[in-house]
Design a protein around this nucleic acid. Structure first.
Lengths: 360, 360
DNA sequence: CTGTTAGCGCCTTCAC
DNA sequence: GTGAAGGCGCTAACAG
């Protein structure tokens, strides 16, 4: 018990495993085994308790770097993200961070931006032994990115997208959510429903477009490609798309809009307002992926809430399970979607219908 | 040159320093010295070139874990953040990540939330040797947090706040920016200017309140504490504060508002709109810290743009310099602020003035 | 059951 | 200029 006092004196310094061993009067191997919960190691309960007590008293924390060198693990995950200031990605990160923290992992964040090639980021993280696995929320070019990822021979999981030949992914229910959005508009009596879509080749956009068609089909409404306007993902894109929509002629003007993104919805709403078209009296609008800005808009935007945070959580969690050998590569779709009704959608009234055809 | 071919064959595997040494036909010590730029090490240029060439060809990346164990460094920084989905913090992270990446560091993100005590996060990160330093963007309780940080005896920097006894911080110019906001309103002819403030004890709020007073003083306007309404930082808080403001009686109603946050401004605007008060015809409003939501609001919000991203960049950058022994602990204030004029502010017209006193 | 020991990959004296 | 060797803290194989 001499050591314990001596060491406690400088509780502040980091202690090594051998400090603990000395203080507990056992070999350092015993400490290592007890603390890392080696099942095959049998000790008297008393010894075990002494070791854990001493470790706690000294505030011993294993040096993860040394541990990592020995067992070739870092207990950290890398997450590669585009546009960090996009709330969608922020929510994914929040979920991933929570899962990582719960399981003793750290989350290392890498932002794809100016200059640095995406594959170079993967490579750096993995080759420098900084991470045990990669959460990839950005995949600029599937043809380049997927082979690059596979070549690293390290676990990775795609989040918010799928790619050919990649079994390990986590996505939300883009298609089902989009369908639900349309169904909601239909249930309000709308029959001419426009879609402001994302980039046509992107995974999420394609799914949401499919869901849009599903919703129309289920309601017995025809799909009219002239009611689909490519908006991308930005506010400016939404505004442009809305202008195009208004240009098609009053006869064909829709009474409701399903926007692929909150920002797109926001852009569209600003154009509608400028044109004197009232939301929701003249046109209802619903956005995809709920978020704070939905509440800020005027009127507050009805949205489809999806499991963004859960997606990040699942991605990190199943990646860790895979790393630890407890799970196979497997794709997951988080099914739940939910309409969050706010003030931007309303029943298609007589008045709305009349206005749509006569006003302006 | 036999080795080089052999090794190149499996470019995919990670190579060690001795692979490079063999391939280049030199000792591994030579490789280490050349690659880590040891000034005291003199080699023929030819040898140096051969080493660097081989390293590049083999795509050699030093194992940071092994390196870290040897030199007690991880080449990564931890950033502790509250509310990751707040765009202000997102911008800080973006800047920090960029600085870290530029200097070969990784950024490890830790989110303070449910349950986990803030100081426990610091402790875990540092004691496990996961980070060389900490960027602290959250400090719930200065009295607890600062001693805890100091006890770790590890470099850290406070970002977006100061605290007593902490010399190393990076902040934006809250006070100057707030003053500029008021000056802008004054220049438009406003003389009754309300302030929707943050929590009274928080660093940023205090500074902005001071700046508000500075602005009034400079314009020769009296400070009237009845024109300051505590709104916190949320939309709901902004809405409540606006309602309070409207309740003070028409005679005293301000013609302009300086809101401490974009969300607060948004909340206030929604209440004003609901009450039939037009922005900016009846009341001008300006927010603090520019961001995407400013453009989304109706009307788009005039703001004070501050150096959020630069703040994150500076914090990471100077922390790294300190870690590497090149700089002292030093506080920095990023002075630049800039009015971003949008549609929520307008000259106080006769009409506005009359309305303020008569309408409703 | 417990202790001793050999590295994980790297950097850094210290002889040569 | 070079190369051999020790050791950072830890784990796992191997002895006892």
């Amino acid at each position: 018990m001499f050591w314990i006092d001596l060491l406690m004196k400088n509780k502040r310094r980091s202690h090594t495993i051998s400090d603990v061993a000395k203080a507990a009067g056992v070999s350092l191997a015993a400490v290592s085994r007890v603390l890392s919960n080696d099942k095959a190691f049998v000790v008297r309960d008393e010894t075990r308790k002494r070791i854990t007590d001493v470790a706690r008293d000294l505030n011993y924390q294993p040096n993860q770097v040394a541990r990592g060198l020995r067992i070739s693990r870092t207990f950290s995950l890398g997450i590669v993200i585009p546009e960090l200031d996009n709330p969608v990605h922020a929510r994914i990160i929040i979920g991933a961070e929570r899962a990582a923290a719960e399981r003793g992992y750290s989350l290392l964040i890498a932002h794809r931006d100016n200059g640095m090639v995406e594959t170079a980021i993967y490579e750096r993280l993995v080759r420098q032994n900084r991470v045990d696995g990669l959460i990839v929320a950005t995949l600029q070019d599937e043809k380049v990115g997927v082979p690059a990822l596979k070549e690293l021979e390290h676990p990775f999981v795609l989040v918010n997208r799928k790619a050919k030949g990649v079994k390990h992914y986590v996505v939300i229910n883009d298609q089902g959510g989009a369908r639900k959005a349309v169904e909601h508009l239909v249930s309000l009596g709308h029959r001419r429903i426009a879609h402001l879509s994302g980039a046509p080749h992107r995974y999420n956009s394609k799914c949401r477009l499919k869901g849009y068609k599903d919703g129309l089909l289920a309601a017995g409404l025809p799909f009219d490609k002239e009611l689909v306007f490519e908006a991308g993902y930005t506010q400016a894109g939404g505004a442009d798309a809305a202008r195009q929509m208004l240009a098609v002629g009053i006869k064909k003007r829709p009474t409701a809009i399903f926007a692929t993104t909150l920002l797109v919805a926001a852009g569209a709403m600003s154009v509608l307002r400028a044109e004197g078209i009232n939301v929701p009296d003249d046109v209802s609008i619903i956005g995809f992926n709920d978020g704070a800005i939905a509440e800020i808009l005027a009127p507050p935007l009805t949205t489809v809430r999806t499991q963004l945070e859960a997606m990040g959580y699942q991605a990190a969690s199943s990646l860790i399970s895979y790393i630890e050998g407890n799970e196979d590569f497997v794709g997951k779709t988080l099914k739940d979607t939910e309409i969050v009704e706010r003030a931007s959608t309303a029943p298609m009234s007589r008045k709305a219908s009349r206005r749509t055809f006569n006003s302006r």
